[in-house]
């Protein structure tokens, strides 16, 4: 058993190694890459992605998948932007409302998946179409936000040395990631999620609350997607119903590259963080190097995805053979 847990951690180490290698090569190659500013920006630029990835990690750990995250993000951005900008609703009311809607949306999908034993893939696909459509019902165009509370949040920053500071969105990401890690690895709920993803029947026979756990992971993912949307309104200063197309793929790719098995039951929050940072580092490299166009980001992510899935596959075969 000890051997299998160790080999399950191998993908995580491999991912960390990739991140380290990527960052080192980029630091040697591009002047000014190795700086606290770049690292701080990695966190604030990818706050939305990271927060959504925390939610997705729970869903994938439980053996499911959530395709609706990009659409829920888009809905949340346009919902909050319209409320704050066009209806003069205080952000203190609009933001909790948006988060509540995202959470209930996720809960609804989780209910359909759990109660009627529907495939998560199709239900969240329906959720994706639905949320995207509703986002466009609210507004067909991008809505900019000018609001005193927003400005105050944007001014906020924790200084890191002379030239860098950690923005509020980056802080939100870090705090949320830690909360997610605690929930996943140090609570009863977290253990239920792992058990459910490992083997649903065993989990049920052990008397674990399988149904409630299953619905909860989709609720968490809905909340995370909505929070990612809220963070995005701060980051971009606007809401846009067309935001986050293909976002779900980036999120899933980050989680899988982070070593979480898509079959469920195996994975870590640290891995998810590493996956998100790899995504961010590739993007930063593309920005530093003007010659490479953005299509390389997709190809690199696809290549890494292939590499890590093959690695996982090889390891799981190997462990099975040892047993």
């Amino acid at each position: 058993m000890k051997f299998s847990t160790r080999s399950q951690n191998l993908p995580l180490y491999a991912t960390m190694l990739v991140l380290l290698a990527l960052f080192s090569v980029a630091s040697l190659r591009y002047e000014g890459f190795f700086s606290t500013r770049v690292v701080a920006n990695l966190f604030s630029d990818n706050a939305s992605l990271g927060i959504a990835a925390v939610g997705m990690t729970f869903v994938i750990l439980a053996g499911g998948i959530d395709l609706s995250v990009g659409a829920v993000l888009a809905f949340t951005t346009i919902f909050t932007a319209t409320l704050v900008q066009n209806h003069n609703v205080s952000p203190f009311v609009a933001l909790p409302l948006a988060l509540a809607i995202g959470t209930s949306f996720g809960t609804g999908m989780g209910f359909l998946i759990q109660r009627y034993e529907l495939p998560p893939f199709l239900v969240t696909l329906g959720g994706m179409f639905f949320a995207r459509g509703v986002a466009f019902v609210i507004s067909q165009e991008s809505v900019g936000i000018t609001n005193a509370t927003y400005d105050k949040v944007l001014e906020f920053g924790v200084p890191l040395g002379a030239e860098a500071s950690l923005s509020a969105t980056a802080l939100a990401f870090i705090v949320f990631l830690i909360a997610g890690a605690v929930l996943a690895h140090f609570t009863r709920f977290g253990r239920n999620v792992f058990a459910l993803g490992g083997n649903e029947n065993s989990a049920r026979l052990m008397g674990l609350p399988v149904g409630a756990t299953k619905i909860s992971v989709y609720a968490i993912s809905g909340f995370c997607s909505a929070l990612a949307g809220v963070v995005s309104t701060f980051y971009k200063g606007s809401g846009n119903p067309a935001d986050g197309v293909g976002f779900e793929l980036d999120v899933i790719a980050s989680v899988v590259i982070g070593g979480t098995l898509l079959t469920g039951g195996v994975g870590t929050m640290a891995g998810t963080l590493t996956g998100v940072l790899i995504f961010g580092t590739i993007q930063t490299v593309l920005n530093f190097d003007g010659r490479l166009n953005s299509s390389w980001l997709r190809i690199a992510m696809g290549g890494l995805l292939l590499l890590f899935i093959l690695l996982q596959r090889f390891l799981s075969r190997h462990t099975a053979a040892v047993r």
């Binding site: 299509s295 997709r298 190809i299 992510m301 696809g302 995805l305 292939l306």
Partner: peptide, 8 residues
């Protein structure tokens, strides 16, 4: 994920 990048 990669295909659209390849097309571009």
């Amino acid at each position: 994920v990669a295909g659209r990048g390849i097309a571009m």
